[in-house]
């Protein structure tokens, strides 16, 4: 079935099925952390999660119908936001903690050992509290994550060729499907029409906060790489470079 003919319910169940499995860091964490050991654990986990993120994106109905150039560009623009929203979701029931994975949980204070990371941890914890206050539901979470992916480069590229225009139109229709799905998920919560509208507004406004934290995180990671605190390699390096070379 094409996503345009799917009901919002069907669309949500497809993106729920696309959810990546729980991922473990699988390292012996030596505490207390050093700046290098914490950065290494964070980047190792990110690299593993990125591989699963690509498979996740491909399972979102309609994503693989976009041009390959758009698929690449979207993922390169939003990967850290997606990782951060996943982190927020895992941490939502654990106030004051960031649950990077079931075997890698950090307290706010542990951020002290990495220069400049406490500020980012605090912004992530603040976003997590906000989602906790809103009692974010799983259906809403999966819609928000798809919205981040599809919205990530809408305002940074303009289609030139006919092929680019076609892909852009597909992208816009796909975003319509995701917005419809989110509206449907909110409508299931038994709120008044006005409360539903407000909830949609509050949830989508949080995405601008996540974009902001992601930009901070991207700068932080590139600084850590430049100072040789951590060796960034493989897929993570490719995704980081895309954000640092204006690409």
């Amino acid at each position: 079935t094409h996503h345009s003919s799917m009901s919002p319910e069907e669309f949500i169940s497809r993106i729920m099925e696309a959810e990546p499995p729980e991922i473990y860091l699988m390292e012996d964490l030596k505490k207390p952390f050093t700046q290098a050991s914490m950065m290494m654990s964070l980047t190792n986990l990110a690299d593993k999660e990125l591989v699963l993120m690509i498979s996740w994106a491909k399972k979102i109905p309609g994503f693989v119908e976009l041009s390959l150039a758009d698929q690449i560009h979207l993922l390169k623009c939003c990967w850290l936001e997606i990782l951060m929203l996943g982190l927020i979701w895992r941490s939502v029931d654990h106030p004051g903690k960031l649950i990077f994975s079931p075997d890698f949980k950090l307290n706010r204070e542990e951020g002290q050992c990495v220069e400049g990371i406490m500020e980012i941890f605090d912004m992530l914890l603040a976003a997590t509290s906000r989602f906790r206050e809103l009692k974010l539901q799983r259906e809403e979470y999966v819609c928000l994550k798809a919205m981040i992916l599809l919205n990530s480069n809408l305002c940074t590229s303009s289609p030139q060729t006919a092929e680019e225009l076609e892909s852009r139109n597909k992208l816009l229709r796909l975003l319509d499907s995701v917005i419809d799905a989110l509206v449907w998920a909110i409508s299931k919560l038994g709120l008044s029409t006005q409360q539903q509208t407000l909830r949609l507004g509050h949830l989508t406004m949080l995405l601008s906060h996540i974009r902001h934290v992601s930009n901070k995180g991207m700068d932080h990671l590139s600084t850590m790489k430049r100072k040789n605190v951590v060796l960034v390699y493989d897929l993570l390096l490719e995704m980081l470079d895309a954000n640092m070379t204006g690409g």
């Binding site: 591989v51 690509i54 498979s55 491909k58 399972k59 390959l68 698929q71 690449i72 993922l75 390169k76 493989d234 897929l235 490719e238 995704m239």
Partner: peptide
């Protein structure tokens, strides 16, 4: 070929 491109173009398992 970049790793991203490679992951995007391989058929799902």
């Amino acid at each position: 070929h970049t790793k991203l491109l490679q992951l995007l173009t391989t058929k799902p398992e």
